[in-house]
Structures are given as structure tokens and as C-alpha cells.
Amino acid sequence: MSKKILEIRWHGRGGQGAKTAALLFGDAALSSGKNIQAFPEYGPERMGAPVASFNRLSDDPITLHCSITNPKIVVVLDPTLMGKVDVIAGLPEDGSIIVNTKETPATVRANLKLKGAKVYTIDASGISKEAIGRDIPNTPMLGALVKVSGFLDFTQMLKDTEVKLSKKFKGKPEIINGNIEAIKKAYAEVAGE
């Protein structure tokens, strides 16, 4: 595996936006001049069923087209997946896992029986409900991921996201502002050990 490529795996449930999150994060990284890949895992697609999606990010062109088995970062959008899906599969010692939960990193680590790797938690659902009015954890998780990965410039990423949301939600400034606020809050509040 080329060490210069950052590989990320997203876990969510069908309809929760795991694929969209990977696409958004890829798009944001592209705007920062990175080479990117974003792709979902395809299987039976049902609302609520466990799904995964992936990112590859690099300063150099990416020619890898195989699946990602040892992601440096794992993002869990739905905490109820833990214990049902092996979310830490292939996570290396120097990797990180970010979980959308109210629990502390220490509790999550204990529940996952995880040795090594860093554990981060953020109440992305809570932030989303407060800022956007709905439980859409994927946008705040982007903020947490930017912080943990250290791969993108946060100010630039916020600016790009705003531009993209402005195109998609023309005439709905509350949605745009809500999303931006949610990303900022998650960036500030994500905690790890």
C-alpha cells in the first residue's frame, strides 16, 4: 500500500448519507487540489441496512482500483452498528475511529474492545438536530473528520462546502447556515483519546 494515500471507511445505515458523506468529503478534498476517490460498497440496498462507503485522498494521482481493507480512518455515522458490524476490521494501530455518539471515547473503546488506534467521539446527531432541525449526522461528521485527519485546510473546506450548498439549496439560507454551523461545531467539539 502506498503510504502517501489516506484511506477512509464510512459506516452507516441505508438512507443515512454514508455515500453522500464520502462524495462530499471527496469533493471538498478535490477543491483543495487533492486527488480523490469516493465510492460506496454495493450490495442489497435497503433503508436501514448496514452500508459502507470509502475515500482515497492523495497529493499524487491515485491508480489503485481495489477495495479498501485497511483504512487509516473509520467513521461511524450510526452508533447502533457497533457490535453488529465489525467497524474496526483492518484498522491499523496508528489509525483512528470517529463515532457519532454521546458516549465518551473511553466508553466506546471499551465497548469495541479496541487496543491501539485513536478513538474520537462527537454527538453529530445532537448537533445536526440543533443546527439543521433533523438528524443528518453526515455533515457535522465532515467537520470532525477534517479535524482528525488533518488532511484539509478547514477554512477552505468550509468555504467550498458553502459554495456547493448554495447551489443545491438556493433560496434556503437556513439549510446552508445550519449545515455550516453543524460542521463548525463538530470540528470544535470532537474529542479523542
Binding site: L23, D27, N35, I36, Q37, A38, F39, Y42, H65
Partner: peptide, 12 residues
């Protein structure tokens, strides 16, 4: 193109 591997992979 290769199904899913390329058809559904977003890249630059």
C-alpha cells in the same frame, strides 16, 4: 469501463 469499480467511483 469496469462496472462499479469505475462506473460508481467518483474521482478527479
Amino acid at each position: 469501463t469496469d462496472g462499479f469499480i469505475i462506473s460508481h467511483c467518483m474521482s478527479k
